[in-house]
Design a protein around this nucleic acid. Structure first.
Lengths: 254, 254
DNA sequence: TTAAGTCGTTCGATTATAGTGGACGACGAG
DNA sequence: CTCGTCGTCCACTATAATCGAACGACTTAA
């Protein structure tokens, strides 16, 4: 095998491949893993046993599945995160005040990662939850982040991720996106509806810490509500107040 | 090296050890990992680069840290879990009805794992969150599960985990615990206050699916409230109704 | 400005270790 | 009862993880 640039450890990569397969199939024994990955059964067995020893995989009665340790580690990462700790209460207050769904997102691996959600009494019940990822260009929070990233990062993201549509309204044209990012920089906030999910719209404002974008806060509403300009202005104003509070609290509480 | 019973893959185990260390130190370069784990710097580097390739570790500017992929994978595991999907809405209703903090827990690796929490208007603001783990014997939900587990599993758990106290009220005597488990089986519910956290109390009821305990639901309150017998009875009744609903919904919605 | 000490990263030789086929007992189906 | 599956275990072999040394980029101190 030719060394593809920089070499990595095949065994560790394969262990994580098995984790991915275990995710897909929920539960499996060595035989099934072996056939799915085209490796000998005995090899699959050693991997599974090793992964079970780490605690990230659990063996019940010969079959293996992913354990809740992923949830444990992931949640711990979230709850120790400075941005989350600073924001949590303020996001709850914003959700209570607006009665809408509030989200805190960050960028990682060229994607939007939802770090936290707070629900209000009238909030949309979509499948949005902490840990979910979406493309950056399909929603207001992602665009708010993109607008604050250096140009070369934006180029890189567009090149590697493309501008895949997820609804008919998703922005797919690069020049359209770039001009909207400029508008967002001017206005200080981003808006979208039906671009990620039909019937869903949101407003988003980036959080900047030390001249760098640390994430964004969004308010998610039904398209009908966010389309109303007056209501939208109200949301944006309250959102901006929350983001300002987060920024200040971050600076002095950390 | 002598083979300690069944052999495992040292490289995969070491990769997860590095993940643990990365968790502890938040961010680190190859040198720091190398000294902490007593391995050569170049070895640490290969591991880190490989882990970065999996996406579970992220490399910013030479230093490495755990990525949000743990949160992503963990949340996905949670949200596709049948018990959670069946319970989520009912737990929300219970929280709204009682105005208290409601938790859904399961057992894994001899511990209580909080799968989900729903907050009510008066609910305690403790650091309880989805993904957190606690010893089984320190709270009502854990004891509710223990009461339904086969005797040999209980023996095993007590032997490997012990009965470590976390407050002055924690049950540390095995015979006291066993007799309480028998009481819980009779009554159908478990109660505790100040056993896990001083000032916190809860009632818990196990969820049984196909003659097996699948988890437990708990209502978390300030000690003062749960100590009131009348209030406690009200909580237990509402809790029981919710658990019944979950059991029925699970049977027919799955 | 320079020099010494970091850092992260790369390379190649060595050797420990992951990969593998085959065998075993357990289980369920025919 | 038998056949075909399963998960698990073992031992040989060749691959891939290991590790020292060297590199360029930074930071610090002289």
């Amino acid at each position: 095998m030719t060394t593809d640039g920089t070499s990595t450890m095949t065994s560790v990569l394969r262990a994580f491949d098995i984790i991915t397969v275990l995710w897909e199939v929920k539960r499996a024994g060595p035989s099934e893993i072996a056939t799915r990955m085209s490796i000998p059964k005995s090899t699959a067995h050693v991997y599974l046993r090793t992964l079970a020893e780490t605690g990230y995989v659990v063996n019940d009665g010969g079959e293996y599945s992913l354990s809740y340790r992923f949830l444990m580690t992931g949640s711990r990462i979230k709850h120790r995160n400075s941005l989350f700790r600073v924001s949590e209460q303020l996001l709850g207050e914003l959700a209570a005040e607006t009665d809408e769904l509030v989200t805190l997102v960050v960028e990682q691996h060229d994607e939007t990662v939802i770090l936290h959600t707070e629900r209000g009494d009238r909030s949309l019940e979509l499948g949005l939850y902490s840990g979910m990822t979406t493309p950056l260009h399909t929603n207001a929070t992602g665009k708010a982040i993109l607008a604050q990233l250096p140009d070369e990062r934006v180029d890189e993201i567009i090149e590697t991720q493309g501008l895949e549509p997820v609804t008919e309204q998703t922005i797919t044209d690069e020049s359209v996106l770039r001009s909207e990012l400029a508008d967002i920089r001017d206005a200080g906030y981003a808006v979208d509806w039906n671009q990620q999910v039909v019937g869903m719209g949101l407003v988003g404002i980036p959080i900047s810490i030390d001249e760098q974008v640390a994430g964004a806060v969004g308010i998610v509403t039904p398209t009908e509500r966010v389309k109303n300009e007056e209501y939208r202005r109200t949301l944006i104003q309250k959102l901006q107040e929350t983001v300002d509070s987060i920024t200040i609290k971050y600076r002095y509480g950390h």
